[in-house]
């Protein structure tokens, strides 16, 4: 089975800045693939390389087995793209922009377009300049979803959408997946990726730091345990895989490596459990583990733009 997207050791530099640094990404047909990373990690650069808008310096990038730079036009017939920050033409209406994008891609389904306008509560007769951020985002989402394509590339598509619209967006993506489409969903909204994606790739400073199913990644994470025991639990601190241990008035709290969870819980049980709360790892923690203590000042500053392109 040929992957829909395959990037191997891709390097892209802007002068002395390495936006992608031997980056790897594989997306298989029919999967909704989460693409996670903090601001400025290189998500948008990777997507622009896939779209043939940027030429990478070295490594191999493949889209449907083709070259995203040389075969851009042919490949684009099979995909739709939703940028993270949709800029509309101030003089065109939202409806005109949807049609232009859809038809240049090779046509859109007017029935689906009308249905999506309805679902997203979108008025297509207003001029581009007068739309709010969320409504501008809807233009690109509606144009993409009403096209008949095999792949959807979405770069933080829901930024600016209200929670109600976000739920509708999630429904739409699930329908697309059910219809057999492949989706690459870049995000830093973790719960959205958790809800929609079976596999994720995490990028940081231009490098792939983790890639796999959520299941696989959870093995790498820690589960939080809070328990009250009949006998003192102080000795638990010496067990392998236990971290961030604290004991307060018979109430013990610690994190445990998920693959050591079984032996540790047996030990807790041996102390006599009065009360036990265990929380599964969330993607927040997954993120925190990769970036936790080492978030650079730059990443903390949360710049709006992904990369600086002059």
């Amino acid at each position: 089975m040929t992957p829909v997207i395959s990037m191997k050791d891709v390097v892209k530099t802007y002068g002395s800045v390495r936006a992608l640094d031997f980056f790897n990404l594989t997306v298989n047909p029919g999967e909704v693939h989460g693409f996670l990373g903090p601001n400025g990690a290189g998500k948008t650069t990777a997507i622009r390389v896939l779209l043939g808008l940027l030429r990478h310096d070295s490594g191999v990038a493949r889209l449907f087995g083709g070259d995203p730079w040389a075969d851009a036009v042919e490949l684009h017939r099979r995909l739709a793209y939703v940028p993270g920050d949709v800029n509309l033409w101030p003089e065109l209406t939202g409806g005109e922009a949807i049609d232009v994008l859809g038809r240049l891609r090779g046509g859109l389904d007017p029935k689906k377009r009308a249905e999506l306008c309805e679902r997203f509560d979108f008025d297509p007769t207003k001029k581009g300049r007068t739309y709010s951020k969320g409504n501008r985002q809807k233009v690109a989402i509606i144009a993409a979803l009403s096209s008949d394509v095999d792949l959807l590339i979405m770069d933080e598509p829901t930024s600016g959408l209200d929670p109600l619209m976000e739920v509708i967006f999630q429904e739409c993506i699930k329908e697309e997946q059910a219809a057999g489409k492949t989706v690459l969903l870049s995000s830093h909204i973790l719960y959205q990726v958790e809800v929609l994606c079976e596999r994720v790739t995490i990028i940081r400073q231009g490098q792939t730091v983790e890639s796999g199913t959520l299941q696989e990644l959870r093995h790498l994470t820690r589960t939080s345990v809070t328990a009250e025991t009949e006998r003192p639990a102080a000795d638990l601190i010496h067990l392998p895989g236990v971290h961030d241990f604290s004991l307060d008035n018979g109430r013990v709290q610690f994190d445990v490596d998920t693959d050591k969870l079984g032996p540790v819980i047996s030990e807790v049980a041996a102390l006599g459990i009065r009360n036990l709360v265990s929380q599964p790892p969330t993607l927040e923690q997954l993120f925190m583990r990769h970036y936790g203590e080492e978030l650079t000042a730059e990443e903390l500053a949360e710049p709006e733009k992904e990369e600086v392109v002059a």
């Binding site: 043939g52 808008l53 036009v73 684009h76 920050d85 800029n87 994008l101 240049l104």
Partner: peptide, 15 residues
């Protein structure tokens, strides 16, 4: 520079 070309060129429209 306004980003409009990015939207158009990611459709089947060649440069």
């Amino acid at each position: 520079t306004a980003g409009h070309a990015e939207a158009l060129l990611s459709t089947a429209l060649g440069r």
